[in-house]
């Protein structure tokens, strides 16, 4: 199987079973957060995507329309992209995004992939997105008593940490 065929199969899976209508150009498909866990399970068990490749969370602050009386264009939210890879050729990467609001959480993939333990901890630590039912959601990189999540857009890069800097 070539990589293009694997990509077509992945797109067909998204469209038929997980309600994804459009695949954006130059970007990864956006999946409803309710399907997040089921999609990972289907990919692992039915299609052999067994390598847990990455999880990337990113923070998007609220967008306001300054011309139009600060009307809300987009609320503050997180996006979490996940990538799974199959072993051996063609090593296709199945990647999708989910969007969660500030008070929502993403279901953890730890029951499927043991690597989600540390990766999700790291994203929680740095970005602040919460993972529901994670067995051990502590900080990984920063000290336990650190305040704030450094990779959020509202966190200044030169934030001081007395007495050390």
């Amino acid at each position: 199987m070539t990589r293009d065929e694997a990509q077509e199969r992945f797109v067909a899976l998204l469209q038929e079973r997980f309600g994804v209508s459009e695949i954006p150009e130059g970007n990864y498909p956006l999946v409803d957060v309710a399907h997040h866990f089921e999609l990972a399970r289907a990919l692992r068990d039915e299609f052999g995507y067994r390598i847990y490749s990455f999880v990337v969370a990113s923070h998007y602050p609220a967008q306001l329309d300054a011309k139009n009386d600060n009307a809300v264009i987009d609320t503050e939210h997180y996006e979490v992209a996940t990538g799974l890879r199959c072993i051996g050729a063609p090593a296709h990467l199945a990647s999708w995004r989910v969007r969660v609001e500030l008070d929502q959480s993403v279901p953890t993939l730890f029951p499927l992939f043991a690597g989600a333990d540390w990766q999700e901890r790291e994203q929680y630590d740095l970005v602040g997105v919460r993972f529901a039912d994670h067995p051990d959601l502590r900080r990984l990189m920063m000290p336990e008593d650190w305040e704030g999540h450094p990779l959020r857009k509202d966190y200044a890069i030169e934030t001081a940490c007395p007495p050390w800097r």
């Binding site: 067994r50 390598i51 847990y52 990455f54 072993i87 051996g88 992939f113 043991a114 690597g115 990766q119």
Partner: peptide
């Protein structure tokens, strides 16, 4: 694989990748 380990570590465990 489940931990996302690749490279020589995984190949020493029989993951042909």
């Amino acid at each position: 694989s489940s931990l996302g380990i690749t490279g020589p570590l995984a190949r020493a465990s029989g993951v042909d990748h």
